[in-house]
Amino acid sequence: MSTASKVLAELIDALRCLPGVGAKSAQRMAFHLLERDRDGGRRLAAALTAAMERIGHCRQCRTFSEEPVCALCAGAARDRHVLCVVESPSDLAAIEQATGYRGLYFVLLGRLSPLDGLGPDELGMDLLRRRLAEGEVQELIVATNPTVEGEATAHYLAQLARDAGVRATRLAHGVPLGGELEFIDRSTLAHAFGGRQALD
């Protein structure tokens, strides 16, 4: 990228760290902020700096938090007997928005994946084991993704729960609502078929 300004070139290059942003989009964003929205740009810069400096991980659930313990974990309004394990903070947000779940969460920040260098240590499994040993949690909801690695992680979590004498449940997965069987990929269909339930 050749621009007349070194600072501008650095901004365009920095914007490319965002997912889905290539050279062209980065240039468009930079020009937009400089030409039309300097206040927005300043707000963005301040928010980014604050977030990068102050946001860490909750000591209890590992989600993003600027306090040692996040608002969800610290609050009195949630059911502390149910713990839902998700792969990422975005999965947590999705469940919060889509369901009326009132329990707490545990965020793995990944899934078991030997080839990505992710094992039990990286996923905070020791922290979770200690949490289950405390005895407060009565149900562990395993909400890892229905991928090979997510399933392997679910299996590992189920063993962890069994060792602690905690009931483990898994999100149902199968045919998407509004879907038609003939257009569903064969893995999903095989899974849904294997997990069929009695009609009441």
């Binding site: 080839l115 090979v148 299996h155």
Partner: peptide, 25 residues
């Protein structure tokens, strides 16, 4: 394209499958 029925690995066999893959890579 699919070339046969999928092998359904579950439980410890799934972890063992991930081991095979790491070994090969």
């Amino acid at each position: 394209e699919a070339a046969g029925a999928p092998q359904r690995l579950a439980g410890d066999a799934l972890l063992a499958g991930l081991y095979l893959n790491e070994l090969v890579v």
